[in-house]
Design a protein around this nucleic acid. Sequence first.
RNA 1: GUUCUGGUACCUCAGUAGGAUAGAGGGCCCGCCUCCUAAGCGGGAUGCCGCCGGUUCAAUUCCGGCCCAGAACGCCA
Length: 604
Amino acid sequence: MKQFINVINDEIAKVFSSNDIDTKYADLKKSDKSQSCDYQLNCCFALAKEKKISPAEVGGQIVSLIKDISCDGARVFETCEFCMPGFINININTNAINIYLNKMFSDKNLGLEVIYNDNESSQNIKNIKSVLYDYGGANIAKPLHVGHLRVAVIGEALKRLSRKLGINAVGDIHMGDYGLPMGLVIEQLRDEGIENTFTIDDLQRVYPLASKRSKDIKPDGSLVDPDFDKRAHDATKALQNDEEPYKTIWDRIVELSIADLKERYGELNVEFDYYYGESTVKDIMGPMCKDLIENKIAKESDGAYIIDVSSPDDKKEMPPCMLLKADGAYLYSTSDLGTICFREKNFKIDEYVYVVDYRQSLHLEQVFRAAKIAGLCKENKKFHHVAVGTMNGADGKPFKSRDGGVLRLETLISDARDKALEQLKNSGRDMEGIDLNDLAHKIAIATIKYGDLSNSPTRDYVFNLDTFSQFQGNTGPYILYTVVRIKSLFRKLGVTEERFISFIDNLKTFDTSLVNNKLLKDISLHILRYKNTLYTSYEQYDPSVLCRYIYELSDMFSSFYNDCSIVGEQNPSVKDYYTSICIMVYKIIIEILEVLSIDVPDKM
RNA sequence: GUUCUGGUACCUCAGUAGGAUAGAGGGCCCGCCUCCUAAGCGGGAUGCCGCCGGUUCAAUUCCGGCCCAGAACGCCA
């Protein structure tokens, strides 16, 4: 189903083409001056130049050409006039808006269809039918910290957004589950004699201990415990050869860790389809490297093996991708390339999206190029790196715990929960029969996730719990509050989901002269931009577009809520109209919160 | 050193296919509950859009240079 604004643009384009005006100018823009008009057409300057007449003359001609256009039997423009120095200002007819709203909400999918069948989506995403999101990066045996928050939350939202648009999307956590850290942990567990009985708490305690033990040096620069470091290396190698008891211990580590990760990510409503890790590709890397060396794709350099990934039309210098260390050991790039092999073999993917810290931009660029050069995937395979910025503290530096260490995600969530609980208690509201802890958790998650998602993914942002917890402004709690108020209205009005459609049906025939409310018109026009907003968000890999959209919608709705008594409205026809506005706002916000994977309580 | 990213209100940030008086939120000041959740709503003050040049009828937006901040740059992941 075509979007309202595109329907109008198409009508304008028809008129333009039969009057020798380039149809590219049939492009309505939301007006910056929303007080005076809804949309504007900015083509007068360009056309004036083209046709060598004044903008005013062009404007006058265009106005007379388009002012009477109609769609679905309804006149589209209420007003359409030229304004100096060169704008055409347009007000949309409310009746046309209501007819279109009815059409949109009568469609169970709100007018969305599969993106690659859609004549409105841009060329570069049209062919995308399946996307794999790589967005976890958690490490086995290590607790999640704030650094894991952004990628998880953004990745999950992008994955769900794809699905909303009919694209087959899968998420892979791509765990760090192999290599030296494993050897360190295993040896430490063995030293403590708990290699068969350890718990997840033991693991999280042991890792920093073992890491420190292997690195501690004496004043003269030599290791305090060289034996331990060597044993850890040996254990790592033994594990790679599936030797016992290392294999059994490692299996237990993985099992406990995945269970814990599922629970932790679950608190954030983040779930992965696959818990693959570096170990998944351990048997792929060897043959892959051998093959690349034999085929001269990887070349020897200072004992190591590298793949030249530079290209003649590079504007910047592009260092080679390193495949093997001089001692023959694998690197990050090796496992990333192995992972591409694995995914190509086991999935049918049109685009790979890596939601990973921006500091890995160069590394990933090298890997993507190397994969193509090495023939691990097709030359035209699409790779995209969502270069995620860091979450900073008030000082503008990466967020730290109070004592200056890495802040655990758990701690962050529990701080937010405490804050929510405190706010609930201070609100003086009747919370009879409500599970306060559950509610506080929902608010906390909304606070944290929305705070993160509402910022541009590729930029650093300042995390401030006090700001994010507020009920004013573009915050999670404010959005939740808006939805909860609408839910409360539905209870008062006796409106249930099943009855939504009957109210929507009334829109078709509603006598628009009964209500002359600019706010309601703005809300309606905003709702009609839903599809376009999802597309923009998808094309830009940016969930903050969705946040801004529902914030604006919530903001307008709150004003409406304040201005008009909905439950108390006397005219039944107007009351139904108000109700349908509530329903539409509610549905849109709920759908987007589902994409952002933020739960909404019934009351708060 | 090379390359990348950013510099917009006191703070946190949008925005611009070049265009009409540059936008939000917080904070600050002033109003609004006999009425659906006031954790809400309305109003107000606040800007050399980093600096200098160029292109243009028009530049915060495009181009060039510079300054400042952060980041990446072969044997860590």
